[in-house]
Design a protein around this nucleic acid. Structure first.
Lengths: 192, 192
DNA sequence: GTCTATAGGACGATAGAC
DNA sequence: GTCTATCGTCCTATAGAC
């Protein structure tokens, strides 16, 4: 039973994914959330504040579905568990597309708004750390710095492929196979 | 001796790099270019048209400094030539930073504006093709599809690292070393 | 906490002279 | 080709009732 505030943040995420940060209109957000414009300003200081809090919201939501184990798949092998965790973000489902689009928007916005940067860096670090943990379980003999470097490369590659997909420069299945190969290459690198 | 039109495009690139596509105001662009607002509308159809043409401009300019051989360095080895071509885009110089920032902005904008997508896909393809060509010279025995895949991965990784750098989630030297290692890994993959 | 109504300003785009 | 002046709209934010 989410409160109004959370409903507004959810609506903001949907709207940012649909129209972009630049296209987010406070009035439109009110309509999407089914409330009045002034209620938005009751709950948030201003438009920039909405953006900032939406980032946190997206960061938390992204953590949730990355951490969540797949219900249908067994995925006992930590190596394929890693592959799944990353490939999960390159899927043409409404939720993933929405999250990826919104995430990309906020990443791009942070280049120009310093207030967003700190939160974004923290969320990024958390994500990289999670992937590094999976890598550690997939290959326990690698060193922690090597896992960290691989995790940074793989997540940065994923973001790069993701925005190419969303901006129409790369078909989804091509992005998936490129990422899949990169995962293999990173792991193979340790065995050498 | 560039004409007014080109001056406006240059000013647009500067401004997009400074304030983002979202922050580009036609009036501000006029001031930056030292002309009147209405002259902008004489040379371009509307705000979206300015954005589209600025993308082409950036694409051409990026080609130019990627293709250009370094004046000081010998760089006979095609392998280090490749590394240079990619690492050149992760440098804290005004020109690179401006181009990378503007490129990232237009990439992000294309997610929501279909008119931008075609140009962007073409510019991306050209870039990937150039890098694939360098890979072909660095390792003539690899297959063309393998070169293409590596080029796509490396350029996508570069874009991912670049925006993390620009958005304050990754220090520049860290981004450089991560990319450097990835180049080594891609090339090592063929030898195996 | 939530609404209606509106102030106040910024911005894209155009008209028309030179 | 380039300017000055301005229109009309859209949008953020607030005032004030309930």
């Amino acid at each position: 039973m989410p409160d109004r505030r959370t409903e507004i943040l959810r609506a903001a995420t949907r709207l940012i994914a649909r129209r972009g940060v630049r296209g987010l209109r406070v009035g439109e957000l009110a309509a999407e959330a089914g409330v009045s414009t002034s209620l938005i300003y009751y709950h948030f200081t201003d438009r920039a504040g909405i953006l900032r809090e939406t980032l946190e919201f997206i960061g938390e939501r992204a953590d949730r579905y990355t951490a969540e184990p797949e219900p249908g798949a067994p995925a006992d092998d930590p190596c394929s568990e890693l592959a799944q965790a990353l490939l999960l973000e390159l899927q043409d489902s409404a939720e993933v597309r929405e999250n990826s689009t919104a995430w990309g928007e906020l990443r791009a916005s942070a280049v120009f708004e310093s207030r967003l940067r700190e939160d974004l860096a923290r969320a990024t670090h958390t994500w990289v750390h999670e992937i590094a943990g999976l890598l550690g379980r997939a290959h326990p003999f690698g060193t922690a710095p090597a896992h960290a470097a691989s995790a940074e490369r793989l997540t940065a590659l994923l973001e790069g492929l993701s925005i190419r997909w969303l901006s129409g420069s790369l078909p989804l299945d091509r992005a998936r196979s490129l990422l899949d190969e990169a995962i293999g290459t990173e792991i193979a690198g340790w065995r050498a």
